[in-house]
Nucleic acid binder design. Sequence first.
DNA 1: CTGAAAGCGCTAACAG
DNA 2: CTGTTAGCGCTTTCAG
Lengths: 333, 333
Amino acid sequence: MTPAGPDRRPTLADVAARAGVSTALASIVMREAPGASATTRERVRRAAEEIGYRPDSRARLLRSSRSRLLGVVFGVQHAFHGDLVSGLYAAAERVGYELALSAVTPGRDERRAVAGLLSDRCEALVLLGPHSPTAALADLAARLPVVVVARSVRSAAVDVVRTADAEGMHLAVDHLVALGRRDVVHVDGGRAPGAAERRRGFREAARRHGLEARVVAGGLTEDDGAAAARALLAGPLPTAVTVFNDRCALGVLDELRRAGRAVPGEVAVVGYDDSRIARLATVDLTSVAQDVAQLTTLAVGRAVARLDGTPVERRELVVPPRLVVRSTTASPR
Amino acid sequence: MTPAGPDRRPTLADVAARAGVSTALASIVMREAPGASATTRERVRRAAEEIGYRPDSRARLLRSSRSRLLGVVFGVQHAFHGDLVSGLYAAAERVGYELALSAVTPGRDERRAVAGLLSDRCEALVLLGPHSPTAALADLAARLPVVVVARSVRSAAVDVVRTADAEGMHLAVDHLVALGRRDVVHVDGGRAPGAAERRRGFREAARRHGLEARVVAGGLTEDDGAAAARALLAGPLPTAVTVFNDRCALGVLDELRRAGRAVPGEVAVVGYDDSRIARLATVDLTSVAQDVAQLTTLAVGRAVARLDGTPVERRELVVPPRLVVRSTTASPR
DNA sequence: CTGAAAGCGCTAACAG
DNA sequence: CTGTTAGCGCTTTCAG
């Protein structure tokens, strides 16, 4: 079928030859850059189509000084990171950037994930809930713009886009108190990104209402939540529980139900993230929602601002959370 | 601080100049290729270290004919895909390949995810549970090796690595029947990858045991499962239910419990995927496990075999599943 | 509006 | 063992 020639993938030169123009012109057409007549455009586009030409992004990036590539490091296990990645794709597309994804897995740590992205000539990095120490993040930020999402970092070197987690807990506690629940316990996220902030917010709000700010150890997973619930069940049950995140809250819920305790009858439960699981009819968990669209738009915007040299007033961008009330807190005590 | 010079990132030429060698030699050292003395290696490595040199993978790939890059398309929502991605990273590393990730999100379909990967010069594609029609997959496979994971495809053009889903359902049904449950219903996955195969396996096994092979509509999500459970609750309850996947099974479980039905007392439930959620103490769902390590190792191996031109005997590689018995089927009727 | 020429940073032949 | 010489496929001046 094809002539003897090796069936290497077609290059821009092939397109140009077929269309009877120079590669430079073909390039202009493919990039949709100004400087070619409508006729030429049509001819070149047709030629490209016919031979199944696909631009080689490597070569393109190599040549242009800018790669317009944003590196994203995410945890492959975290459902919430999935939501953020979705938002980032959309946000990047709106401003003409591409995303390069690099996952953190049980066998691949953040260092490796970042190293891969650096070799790929990303212009800036967006790190979702990174676990790296502040110093490491600062080092990285010395090389290229770094935007940390969903975690606060005490460093003037990196940009941060996060939810006002403390405020989120205020909303939760205020809501519970309004419902007449005054014996509120917080199930903690330990060292997870955002946990310290949420714990702090809980304590502030509790104090403000004159409550005892009791905190029990939790974690990120359903098992952590179940364990926390067992600890709670060992003593007199509080009338409400705020939990670090929805996964953990699910474990709390499930364990409470197993123990035959009514939710929200005896105990109200509030989660965090407003994940898909919280929205399920069968779970229907009251939860503090993070504004994913806002977070991702701001993260990309901030990265781009750094790249464009746009002056930036604040290193930290804080997005307000929203309380989504569902049945785990619906009925008053 | 830095001299007047533009602070562009250091190139191989910079390293070479600093080490007092040619770029070719520096290249050899950086690639750890044979052809440089220990002394030179040391000197070059030091120079690279000092100026913070990082190889530019784009340029490298542009130059070399092979990219050693495997493109992976995954669904950012699917927890199981996360597990597969983790396994793929490990498998690729073992054979000296890199991964390029491209996510399918609510706003980014498979076409776009694939297109991105093609521009990145991936040598082969690994598609996790793709939704594209067979014809589209075959077209793609005409351009480069394509390995489909976790879905069967009736096409001689693409390689498939999947779990023996029918067999998985056999295991589930056999187990239930051994427990004395003879009124078994399957909650279906609809058009999801793997659903047809699982449904078929259920019917085969049911027939073999002389049971009525009842199937009700389900889906991939917890909500789908809850809806299916409500349908089930409308009539006389079966003594056991097999469900398309764990997420859906979770919805079934939760709805049954809400209705006050005992699991496994009245109804036994079996899920599919042996996901983290199934393993949770509070869920403890009997489930058919897919062998992730095996699936991913085979998928990468198959892609590499195609690239190396190694003759391949079967287009389809089928991995046996394993039944993990937990408390949702533990006690006999 | 179009084409020729010069690289982007790196690797792969070859020479020496 | 080391250096020189060509490009990979594309974009980007800069002439015409």
